Amino acid sequence: MKDLNLLKRKLDEMSVNELYEYVKENYPENEDIGIGSKKLIIRRILNLERNRINAEEA
């Protein structure tokens, strides 16, 4: 969870354009998550990361 908090802080400091570029670089298969408000984009990224962590633990 500590990693998710660090990621959230990093994403909060980015502008919307920086977030869109971050999504394009790190989630090329899910580019549509970069569309919407800043708050929505951050929530989608955090959900993807949380799901990835849960899948690795299972």
Rank of each mutant, 00 (worst) to 15 (best):
N54I: 09
K2Y: 12
L7P: 09
K38C: 10
A55E: 15
L6D: 06
E31V: 14
N51F: 08
I41C: 01
E56Y: 12
L6K: 09
R9A: 11
N54Q: 13
V16T: 14
G36H: 03
G34F: 02
I42M: 05
S15H: 05
E49N: 11
R52I: 04
D3F: 03
L48M: 15
L48R: 13
A55V: 05
V23G: 01
R43P: 00
I33Y: 06
Y20C: 06
D3E: 11
E21A: 03
I45Q: 09
K10H: 07
R52H: 10
I45R: 08
Y20P: 01
L11F: 06
G36D: 05
A58H: 12
R50A: 09
I41S: 01
L6F: 07
E29T: 12
I42R: 08
V23K: 02
S15C: 01
N51K: 14
K24P: 00
R52G: 04
N47G: 05
L46T: 11
K10V: 01
K8A: 13
L40Q: 14
K2A: 11
A58S: 11
I53K: 13
I45N: 05
E31K: 15
A58K: 14
I53V: 10
R43L: 08
E25H: 02
Y20Q: 15
L40S: 14
E18A: 01
D32T: 01
N5Y: 11
K8V: 03
D12S: 12
M14V: 00
K24L: 11
Y20N: 10
R50V: 04
N26L: 01
G34P: 07
E49C: 06
A55G: 03
V16H: 14
R50Y: 09
S37Q: 09
R44G: 03
N5F: 10
V23I: 08
I42E: 05
R52N: 12
D32F: 04
E29L: 14
D12P: 03
I53S: 09
L7S: 11
I45W: 02
E57H: 12
E18I: 00
V16D: 13
D3W: 02
D3C: 01
I42K: 10
G34C: 08
N47R: 14
G36M: 05
L7D: 11
N5K: 13
G34Y: 03
L46H: 08
E13I: 06
E29F: 09
M1A: 06
E13W: 08
D12I: 09
G36L: 04
N47C: 02
L7N: 10
G36T: 05
V16W: 11
E49I: 07
G36I: 03
L4I: 09
L40M: 13
E21H: 00
G34T: 07
L7C: 12
N47H: 07
L11Y: 07
L6M: 06
P28E: 05
D32L: 01
L40E: 14
E13A: 13
E25I: 02
E18M: 00
R43H: 11
D32M: 02
E56S: 11
E29W: 03
E49Q: 14
